[in-house]
């Protein structure tokens, strides 16, 4: 019984220690947003919540009907948001797409097929 109480106390203290530690290093992702600037939707919360739907809708239009040059393009996401140094939206937990998806624990499989690097490197476009 005493053992059990000690064990509980120990586990609790561990838990608190972990919680306090976590509060110090806030787990919110620190992202390299690349070039950034004016997004296709000015409302960031809207983009965070619905980018997948916007992309999916336009993807079907482009793929099936051949409608190109519309607003929500994955290639344009990458163009703006690929890391300034890495030129990629993947590669680390600071990268724009990977960082947030790792944080939210959502599988990201766009880039198994799509290019994750910007077409023209940041250096070249300067």
């Amino acid at each position: 019984m005493i053992m059990a109480r000690r064990l509980t106390a120990f586990l609790f203290s561990m838990f608190f220690a972990a919680a306090v530690h976590a509060a110090d290093n806030s787990p919110v992702p620190h992202l390299d947003i690349g070039k950034g600037g004016q997004c296709v939707e000015p409302d960031h919360t809207l983009m965070r919540k619905t980018h997948m739907n916007l992309l999916k809708h336009q993807r079907d239009e482009t793929m099936r009907k051949g409608i190109r040059g519309q607003k929500y393009s994955l290639a344009e996401c990458v163009e703006c948001h690929a890391g300034q140094k890495t030129n990629s939206v993947l590669g680390s937990n600071e990268a724009f797409c990977q960082g947030c998806h790792a944080y939210a624990a959502v599988k990201l499989d766009c880039f198994e097929c799509h290019a994750n690097k910007r077409k023209v490197t940041a250096e070249a476009s300067k």
């Binding site: 051949g66 190109r68 290639a75 198994e112 097929c113 799509h114 290019a115 690097k117």
Partner: peptide, 26 residues
């Protein structure tokens, strides 16, 4: 696959073939 072309997405586990260069035709 890695380093795909931005206009030509392709990836493991799917089937592909000539697209008649649809990205150029468009």
């Amino acid at each position: 696959l890695t380093d795909q072309k931005p206009e030509v997405p392709r990836g493991k586990g799917t089937v592909e073939s000539c697209t008649l260069c649809v990205h150029r035709i468009d």
